[in-house]
């Protein structure tokens, strides 16, 4: 049921790209996994509520007061490309000379 077109669509949603050989491989593997997942259809879940988290703790709130956080230098310490204390990224649109 899983074809290359759908896998390509999911890759797009996931911001991933695959060459033809990998697309082939991933389609086969994901299809096998989805077939395994389809075994869940055998379980009757009528009126069963879904469990999406299991925290046993009530949510807590803190006062909305400014707190001291990490410095700019610290926050930028793992940035791949930066200039003048700012994060540097390529242009959003493809540049002309490319």
């Amino acid at each position: 049921m899983l074809d290359k077109e759908l896998v390509q669509h999911v890759a797009h949603l996931s911001k991933l790209e695959f060459d033809e050989a990998d697309l082939e491989k991933f389609t086969l593997q994901l299809d096998e996994i989805i077939q395994m997942e389809n075994e869940l259809t055998a379980v009757d879940t009528t009126n069963v509520r879904p469990t999406t988290h299991i925290a046993r703790q009530e949510s807590t709130f803190r006062a909305d007061e400014p707190q001291k956080g990490p410095s700019r230098t610290e926050l930028l310490s793992n940035v791949p490309e930066q200039a003048d204390g700012f994060i540097k990224v390529p242009s959003i649109l493809t540049t002309e000379e490319d």
């Binding site: 991933f26 994901l30 989805i34 997942e37 509520r49 469990t51």
Partner: peptide
């Protein structure tokens, strides 16, 4: 990558109920 792909698939429009929600129900 396989897991990101599987997850994006299970959460995507048209498959959410059959996969994510179903799994969350069986978890219960």
């Amino acid at each position: 990558k396989r897991r990101i792909m599987l997850g994006s698939f299970a959460l995507s429009a048209g498959y959410f109920d059959a996969y994510f929600n179903k799994a969350a129900q069986v978890r219960t």
